[in-house]
Amino acid sequence: MSDSILNSIILLASLGTIAAVVLYIVSKKFYVYEDPLIAEVDDLLPAANCAGCGSPGCKAFAEKLVATDDISDLFCPVGGNEVMKSIANLLGKEVNEKEPMVAVLLCNGSCEVRPKTTQFQGPDSCAISAMIFSGETDCQYGCLGKGECVDACDFEAMYMDKETGLPVIITDQCTACGACVAACPKDIIEMRPKNKRDLKIYVACMNQEKGGIAKKACSVACIGCSKCLKVCPSEAITIDNFLAYIDADACTLCRKCVEVCPTHAIIETNFPPKKVKVKTHFNASPSQSKVELKTENDA
């Protein structure tokens, strides 16, 4: 009896010793020197591993930050200016302050205003459905509504609105990592500056058809009438292929274009209500306005 106890103790002890020796040798032999700065920078980064910076993860980004001399082009969209500043202080390098960005959906074609003319049967994937055909509606540029952007979002900043069939971006949670932009096969998500109090004006349409065809497919499409172009005091609006685009840097948020747009394709967000109310389709869905209310209160 005591023999078997002794035997097992000896066996386990020797096994443990051998393992320890092997581990020791391996750790010495294969030791890789790592700059302690990398760990420190990594600690400062938000550890979201979203790849919004272009590197495959926070650790890789930390390595890049330490290795590169001029880090003014590098930016962590999740951490923002604060994190970048503290990293710059730690490394003794210079960073540029960047305007915080937010994802914006450039399509307002809800089920109501952009009726479906065909029915797609296949996988619930925007990319596959875009590969097979142009979409269930007559607009070949707009949102397909399968929600691949929502799946791509790591920050729970997006959800699908069942009523409109469009994704909704919760601006407070959006870190501008760009995952949704990459996931969208129709390229209808754009990163735009967040501005003060999240005030934004943009054309929520990508339709490059002539006015009549665009309007027929979707009643809130940009028809390229160039009314906004004429009214814009700061020359922020350009029209290409019957589609208006507002340059966010030049835009002074005067809201003149919103008023003149005949199809309500230009959307303003988070502005206090004007005395003369402008009816926009964008505020039609209840969930949408709820989100906006929340952000307004926060502001």
């Binding site: 479906k116 003319t117 065909t118 029915q119 797609f120 049967q121 296949g122 097979i132 055909f133």
Partner: peptide, 9 residues
């Protein structure tokens, strides 16, 4: 619901 169905082959 539209009746025209689109799918891959």
């Amino acid at each position: 619901m539209p009746t025209t169905i689109i799918s891959a082959s």
